[in-house]
């Protein structure tokens, strides 16, 4: 869900145009525009668009190289 407005521990968030109140007490510095994963009414963490892109790049790179990452298992993502 995308956060629209934050007021203290609660926020308005929307998904496909549907708005909902969520609790954001488990997030660090929630801001409008952040994407959050919501479970049982609580944002449990933010979604990182940059990391999404990196995962796709990684899959593409592995495909291009044919098989395995050069140094064995995939490095831990940061």
């Amino acid at each position: 869900m995308k956060i629209i407005r934050v007021e203290g521990d609660t926020a308005r968030a929307s998904l496909s145009g549907l708005e909902q109140e969520i609790d954001v007490r488990f997030l660090d510095d929630p801001r409008p525009g952040d994407y959050a994963i919501v479970h049982a009414g609580f944002a449990i963490d933010k979604l990182d668009p940059e990391e999404a892109k990196k995962t796709l790049d990684l899959f593409r790179q592995l495909s291009a190289e044919g098989l395995t990452p050069p140094s064995g298992p995939l490095p831990p993502e940061k």
Partner: peptide, 12 residues
């Protein structure tokens, strides 16, 4: 990694 951090969510 777009959702899961190495250390998870310590606050939660």
């Amino acid at each position: 990694p777009r959702a899961v951090r190495e250390g998870g969510n310590p606050k939660a």
